[in-house]
Design a protein around this nucleic acid. Structure first.
Lengths: 179, 179
DNA sequence: AAAATGAACGAATTAATATGAATTTTTTAA
DNA sequence: TTAAAAAATTCATATTAATTCGTTCATTTT
C-alpha cells in the first residue's frame, strides 16, 4: 500500500459511508428483524442481537428494544417453557385496546328474545361468535356464559339477573357505540 | 364484646379459613387473571398485582410471572407507546394433551356454575368440545346433553337431577381438586 | 451560513420480569 | 391418621428489557 493524500471531501464521505450502507439503516434493519423473527425462534433480545450482528447489522439492545416496540413484536410464552418473540399477525387484527368492536352498532345484531331464563340473540350470518365474545367481555356480571353458533347466540344469565338487566346491559353497549 | 374462650378447633378453622376462600387457589386465581386481562388494559405485572390484590388475591410477582407463563399471556406494544398483556387468541385451540382426567387435573376446566336448572362450564380456549364429549359419555345418567362453544359448555341436566348430582358426578372426576 | 429542529442512536441506568433455591402447603399412599 | 412426595409459593437474585440523557448528523428555517 502506498500512502495517499485524502481530501476533506473524501474523509467526510468515508465517515458517512457507514450510515448509508444497507445494514446501517433503520428501515432495512426493521425488515431484517422481521425476516429473522418470521423464520427463527428467538427468545430474547440478546439472542436477536447476535443474529443481527451475523447479518452485519450492529446495534445495541436499546435500539433493538425500540425497534421491537415499533414493529409491535410481542413476547409470548411457549408450551415448552421457553419464550418467543412473535410478529403481529399479517392481517392486522391488533390487540383490542380498551374498547369493543362496533359490530353491535352496525346492525349485526338482529334481535334479542327470551325464553324462560335464557336469552337468544340473532345475528347476521357468521357474526355470532364475534358478538358472543363481546358479550362475554362486557357482561361478565350479568352473564354466566354464551354459546354461539353461526347466527345465533344463547345467552345464559346468572341467577337472579333479570331480562331487564340483560337489556340494560346491551342498551348501554348500544348507546356507547352509537355516539 | 365479651371475652371468649376459643377452642383449638376454632383456631385451626380460622387459620385455615383463608385457604378455602375462593381467591386463595391457583385455579381460581388463573380465572381472575384471565378476567382482568380480558376486561382491563394491563401494562405490567406490578399493575396486575395491584388489581389482583384489590380482588383479595395476594401473591408475589414471582407467582404472577409463572401464572402468566402458564396462561401463555404475551406482552405486546400498543400503538400509543404503552404495553399490554394479552391473552392468547381464543381461536387457537391449544394442542390437547392427554385424556379427560388429565384435562381436568391440568386446569382445562376453569369453573362450573349454575343458573336455574342449567350448568355452565368454562374451559380453556378450544377445550370445550373435547370436554363436553367426555361429559356426555361419563354422565349420561345425569345429563341430557351438552352444547359446547369454544370455551364454554352448557350442561343440561335431566329432569329431577339436582345440582348436587351434577357436582357429585363431576366430583368423581374432579375428586382430586375439591378436597 | 448559522441557528433551530428533529430523528436515530449508544451508554448507562432503571425498571420489569424470570428463575434458582428454600420453604410451605397440599396430595398421595401406606 | 402420618410420613413421604409433589406442587405451589416466596424470597432473593439474576436476567432481560425499557427508558433517560447526551451526542451526532441531516434537514429546515431564519
Amino acid at each position: 500500500m502506498q500512502p495517499v493524500d485524502i481530501c476533506k471531501k473524501c474523509i467526510t464521505f468515508a465517515e458517512n459511508l457507514n450510515k448509508y450502507a444497507f445494514m446501517k439503516n433503520k428501515r432495512n434493519r426493521l425488515i431484517i428483524i422481521s425476516e429473522i423473527l418470521r423464520s427463527t425462534l428467538v427468545g430474547s433480545q440478546e439472542e436477536l442481537l447476535k443474529l443481527l450482528s451475523e447479518k452485519q447489522c450492529e446495534v445495541t439492545q436499546a435500539t433493538l428494544s425500540r425497534d421491537l416496540k415499533l414493529l409491535k413484536v410481542s413476547k409470548t410464552p411457549l408450551s415448552n417453557g421457553a419464550y418467543k418473540y412473535i410478529l403481529p399477525p399479517v392481517n392486522k387484527p391488533q390487540p383490542i385496546e380498551g374498547t369493543y368492536s362496533n359490530l353491535l352498532s352496525h346492525g349485526a345484531v338482529l334481535s334479542l328474545e327470551f325464553s324462560g331464563q335464557l336469552g337468544v340473540v340473532k345475528t347476521k350470518p357468521g357474526y355470532a361468535s364475534a358478538i358472543a365474545w363481546d358479550i362475554d367481555n362486557k357482561a361478565n356480571e350479568q352473564v354466566l356464559g354464551t354459546i354461539a353458533g353461526d347466527d345465533t347466540i344463547l345467552v345464559i344469565p346468572r341467577e337472579g339477573v333479570s331480562r331487564e338487566d340483560i337489556l340494560v346491559m346491551l342498551n348501554i353497549t348500544f348507546a356507547d357505540k352509537t355516539k
